[in-house]
Structure formats: C-alpha cells, structure tokens
Computed example of a mutant assay.
Amino acid sequence: MDEGLRVCVIGDELVAGLGDARGLGWVGRVMARTRTEDPVFVAQLAVPRESTTSLAARWETEANRRFGARSDNRLVVGLGSADLDEGLSLARSRLNLANILDGAAAARVSCFVVGPPPRPDVDDVALAQLSAAFADVCQRRHIPYVETHDPLRTHEQWHADVAAGDGAHPGQAGYGLLAWLVLHNGWHAWLGVPSDGA
C-alpha cells in the first residue's frame, strides 16, 4: 500500500519559524499553498544555530524515523548562516552539503534546498559567498536551490521585519517573503503538483 508523500524539512531555527507570531514560518506558509490530492506528512526537524557539520551528522537518522518504506520520501534542506558563526571554511560547508545530498540520492530521496537569507549580524560578502557555494553544490547535482540572500539583501521590508524582532530573525512579513521565493522557484514542479498561482 502506498503511504503517500512524506517531507522532512531539516535546518536551523528558520525552519521552525522562530520569531513568527503566527507560528507558521516559511514552511507552514509554503505548505498552505501546496495543493495535493492526499494529505502530506511534513516533519520540521530544526535545531537552533545549527551548522552544516551538525546537520550532516544527524539528518539521516532523524529523517529515516519519519520516512516510510512505501512512501514518497522527500528532503528539504533549509540552510542558515551558522557556518559563518563557527568559522567553517567554504570547502567544509560545500562538503557537508554534498554529503547530505549524496546520502539522500543513494537512498533515493529527492532533495530541495533553500539557501541562507541575509542576517544583519554577519558579514554580507561572506554570506553571499556561502550561498553561492551552496548553489554550486546543488547545480552540479541538478537539485533545486532557492537563492534567498541576493533577492532579500537590499529588500527594505525584510530588513525592517528583522529589525523589528530580535535583529537576526524575521517575523510574519519576512517569512512570507521566504515562502514566496520558495513557491516561485521550483517548489510545485519538484513535488509534481500543480501551482495554485501563489
């Protein structure tokens, strides 16, 4: 018996929607605009301020507990900027993401990657380089990558929303912008479901 679609979303506190008064984050907003014939099981597996090193070490064990032997298993990787906080090299960050994606591919789990958005408390040039490195890893594997840093880098609403909160994380408006970027950069095609015109 087919067990339907199961989506695990791994990443840092942005995956959990930290700072969103409605508690939806970008994941909840994206799923609200995702129309499927059958219900979709979505597991948000977030660890605050998590680097790709930690993410690479834990994703498989946690995701496999939610995946089914006869379900359509999907992995969404929501990347943050903790690698910069921890001083990881670009080469290490690239390798960590590559290990996640290659491990998922070996298990026949389709991946979708969302890049790190701007953060006023980290070096913007370094974050742009990190996002470009993540994008390259995905491009080489033909995996969808949503660039969030570049379109939000000078977006007034994004920066105002972050400033109105804790200075590092967005609120409702910011998560709405992230959701828009995901929905307009291959989300529906990746899931194989029709777009609702979001």
Rank of each mutant, 00 (worst) to 15 (best):
V7T: 02
V9F: 07
V9W: 06
I10Y: 02
I10C: 04
D12M: 01
E13G: 01
L14K: 07
V15M: 02
V15Y: 08
G17R: 10
L18S: 13
G19A: 07
G25C: 12
G25Y: 14
V27R: 12
G28E: 11
G28P: 09
R29T: 08
M31L: 14
R33D: 04
R35E: 13
T36M: 10
T36R: 14
D38M: 09
P39R: 10
F41W: 05
F41Q: 14
F41H: 12
V42Y: 02
V42Q: 02
A43G: 06
A43Q: 12
L45N: 05
A46E: 05
P48M: 10
R49S: 15
R49E: 14
S51C: 04
T53S: 13
S54G: 13
E60S: 15
E60M: 13
E60Y: 04
T61A: 14
T61P: 00
E62S: 05
E62C: 04
A63K: 01
A63H: 02
A63N: 03
A63I: 02
R65M: 10
R66I: 03
F67E: 03
G68M: 03
G68D: 03
N73I: 08
N73M: 07
V76T: 04
V77I: 11
V77G: 00
G78Q: 05
G78L: 09
G80Y: 08
G80C: 06
A82F: 09
L84M: 04
L84R: 06
D85T: 13
E86V: 14
E86K: 11
L88E: 12
L88F: 05
L90Q: 11
A91W: 02
A91Q: 12
A91Y: 07
R92M: 04
R94F: 08
N96Q: 12
N96P: 04
N96D: 15
L97E: 07
A98L: 14
I100R: 02
L101M: 08
D102T: 14
A104Y: 09
A105Y: 01
V113Y: 01
V113T: 08
V113D: 00
P120D: 02
D121I: 14
D121F: 05
D121Y: 13
V122R: 15
D124P: 10
A126W: 09
A126N: 10
A126G: 11
A126S: 15
A132V: 09
A132D: 15
A135E: 15
V137P: 03
Q139I: 05
R141F: 12
R141I: 12
H142V: 06
I143G: 01
V146T: 10
V146N: 00
V146A: 01
D150P: 00
P151Y: 00
P151T: 01
L152P: 00
T154V: 00
E156M: 03
Q157P: 00
A160S: 15
A160V: 03
V162Q: 05
V162E: 05
A163I: 11
A163K: 12
G165M: 09
G165A: 13
D166C: 06
G167W: 03
A168K: 10
A168F: 00
H169D: 06
P170T: 07
Q172H: 13
G174Q: 04
Y175G: 05
Y175M: 07
L177S: 03
L178Q: 04
L178D: 01
L178I: 15
A179W: 01
L181N: 01
V182G: 01
G186H: 07
A189T: 13
A189G: 09
A189P: 00
G192H: 03
P194F: 07
S195P: 03
D196N: 14
